[in-house]
Amino acid sequence: MGIAPGIERHAKVNRPAVRVPAERLLQVAARLRDDPAFAFDLLLDHAAVDRHAENRFELFYHLFSTAHGHALTLTALVPRDAPVAPTVSCIWPAARWHEREAYDLMGILYDEHPDLRRLFLEDDWQGFPLRKDYRDPDMLELPGRP
């Protein structure tokens, strides 16, 4: 199977998965949706994982094709100090709100997003709660955990 350069299989996902460089995400996403052989028209889920130790975020996109019935997980890594990723909301409108949630809770910035706002938290909230290093004055530390 010819996988384009820069795109690699992601073996640690329990379904077909590829890892894509963040800057090529948009291009790959467009192909995945428009190429009739892929036809991934349904974006089931999108969120980010904070790979704190590796100093980066892992974004994942769970795709499904209603035409073929096949599934794919797309992942991309963005650096923690500049967590900017292209928006795929122009390809899958459903991403618009998943991306807002990822911004709200994880602090991923989506370039060209039409409506990037906090989703659940107030507009003046400080910090991004799902990050591993997030600390809140009201948080209690569990004994024996970092």
């Binding site: 640690k12 996902v13 329990n14 089931l44 969120a47 994982v49 769970h62 997980t73 992942t75």
Partner: peptide
């Protein structure tokens, strides 16, 4: 084991997808 695990189920309102890292 280490990795990303995805599972889904049809609830009364649609697909509930669970991703475990």
């Amino acid at each position: 084991p280490e990795g990303i695990h995805y599972g889904q189920i049809e609830t009364a309102r649609g697909i509930l997808g669970v991703t475990i890292a």
